[in-house]
């Protein structure tokens, strides 16, 4: 708990400095949160190029709006809210994100130009973008097949480790909704992954 408290305290100090037009403090905020935000967005949109853009956009909006940030929510919650809203807007405009399941599920589709197009040029290590194991690929597919409402919750809870309360804050929904979406999301993932899990019954 002490560690969490210290992080919160350091965040508050950084926000106050950034609000007073300290660019170095804002830079520190970005360095502290960019991997978390990017990882979340990447799993929301499943495209390194789009995730990079949306992560940039998240921090641009944070930069522009930091004066209106109030410590009612944590910096983490606030950034996830901006990122989530951007991902939802993005998926509204890109049916591919919500309905890409068929193309991803088809055998051999990984080698098609469609996927290659999503890998940005030189600066990226392809190993970083695609998981190697079959199970990893199945997990990615299953996540992308989840309805976006379920995907946000399971990503925030099981991958990013946000507590229920914080997720409820990000999504402005009741705690019970978070819990039931998590239950449904895990249920769908379990059913889809069951054939690939080696479980001795």
């Amino acid at each position: 708990m002490i560690a969490v408290g210290n992080i919160m305290h350091a965040d508050t100090a950084l926000v106050l400095r950034a609000q007073a037009n300290d660019r170095a403090a804002f830079n520190e905020i970005v360095l502290r949160y960019k991997a978390k935000v990017y990882n979340y967005i990447f799993r929301m949109v499943h495209s390194a190029l789009d995730a990079e853009d949306l992560t940039q956009e998240t921090f641009v909006r944070a930069y522009l709006s930091i004066r209106s940030f109030q410590s009612r929510s944590s910096l983490n919650t606030w950034l996830f809210r901006i990122a989530t809203n951007l991902c939802i807007d993005f998926s509204r405009k890109n049916r591919r994100v919500q309905g890409m399941t068929t193309s991803l599920s088809q055998e051999g589709e990984e080698d098609s130009g469609d996927v290659e197009r999503e890998i940005p040029d030189s600066a990226y290590d392809p190993q970083r973008l695609l998981m190697n194991t079959e199970l990893g690929n199945k997990l990615n597919e299953a996540l992308m097949e989840l309805p976006i409402k379920l995907r946000t919750v399971v990503l925030m809870y099981d991958i990013e480790g946000l507590p229920y309360e914080e997720i409820a804050n990000v999504l402005s929904c009741p705690l019970g909704t978070v819990k039931s979406r998590l239950f449904n999301a895990r249920g769908v993932l379990r059913t889809k992954l069951a054939p690939y899990l080696e479980i001795n019954s």
Partner: peptide, 10 residues
């Protein structure tokens, strides 16, 4: 899910 490799920016 908990051990899914973490992605980072370019």
């Amino acid at each position: 899910l908990q051990h899914a490799p973490l992605q980072d920016t370019g």
